[in-house]
């Protein structure tokens, strides 16, 4: 057991070290969502009257969604690291060592989750400083709950990245799959628009989107707007996270028996 935690820590530490050495990654993953927020938030906000009967402006409504988006993008691309490790041979160094395989997967997920979480926090800080989310709306508890949501959402998409990276071996193939996944996941999550008036088929499809519950939870905890009770959102993301991490563990074990 001690061995498991040490392995997780060791793998986590490496991700963090690597991250510190390439700071541009966090700027990259936080920059894009901010551009979305500025252009779509301001553009749509001025073109349409926001018709969901909420008491906030469109850009404020969208801000928690953009935090969710930041985490989605930052997390799901971290799987590339696994492919790099395989191509650069470092994966062999890890796999030949006498550590529990579960520890390797969990350590990878923990490290990448931490890194994506940082990107999410940077965007959160910026939207608060810029006044997009007024300080008056925030509470300590709200921020703490949002943080929990961010961690769990991030681990879901990191785990999905691990699953894909364990199944394909080229970066190109990985990117094709991710790009195919990422936009529907984003648009169906309710990050940009409320789904309350959407047709039934879209609602049904959206119900399978892990990010839907994450964005709802983030919005509830940060600006007090949500469709389902926050604790239910949390149970949902947690269950989804456990599910994908379990699959990631299975997929990762397949790597070595090639």
């Amino acid at each position: 057991m001690a061995n498991l935690f040490e392995t997780i820590y060791t793998l986590w530490l490496r991700e963090i070290l690597r991250f510190v050495k390439s700071k541009s990654r966090v700027i990259g993953s936080g920059g894009q969502p901010l551009i979305w927020l500025a252009i779509i938030g301001v553009g749509f906000g001025s073109a349409f009257t926001f018709a969901s009967g909420q008491h906030v402006s469109y850009i404020t409504f969208m801000a928690p969604g953009i935090i969710g988006m930041t985490i989605l993008f930052a997390s799901i691309f971290t799987g590339v690291n696994i492919i790099w490790d395989r191509q650069f041979g470092f994966m062999k160094e890890i796999l030949v060592s006498p550590v529990p395989r579960l520890g390797i997967v969990l350590g990878k997920i923990a490290g990448s989750t931490t890194v994506s979480l940082l990107a999410g926090l940077v965007v959160l800080a910026i939207v608060v400083i810029a006044g997009v989310i007024p300080l008056g709306m925030l509470s300590i508890i709200g921020i703490a709950i949002a943080l929990l949501f961010m961690i769990v959402i991030s681990s879901i998409f990191v785990a999905i990245g691990v699953i894909i990276a364990s199944t394909v071996s080229s970066i190109e193939a990985y990117n094709v799959i991710i790009n195919f996944l990422v936009l529907p996941v984003f648009f169906l999550s309710g990050a940009l628009f409320p789904l309350s008036n959407a047709p039934l088929w879209m609602k049904a499809l959206a119900a399978t989107d892990p990010l839907l519950y994450g964005v709802d939870g983030l919005r509830g905890s940060l600006i007090g707007i949500h469709n389902s009770p926050i604790y239910l959102d949390f149970v949902a993301v947690l269950a989804i996270a456990v599910f994908f991490i379990a699959i990631a563990d299975i997929a990762f074990r397949k790597i070595q028996s090639k």
Partner: peptide, 20 residues
Amino acid sequence: DPSLDEELTGRENLDFHARL
């Protein structure tokens, strides 16, 4: 074939190994 983490320093590579 090579199997080092090129981003890390030599010492960090050895440190990682020691921990494993």
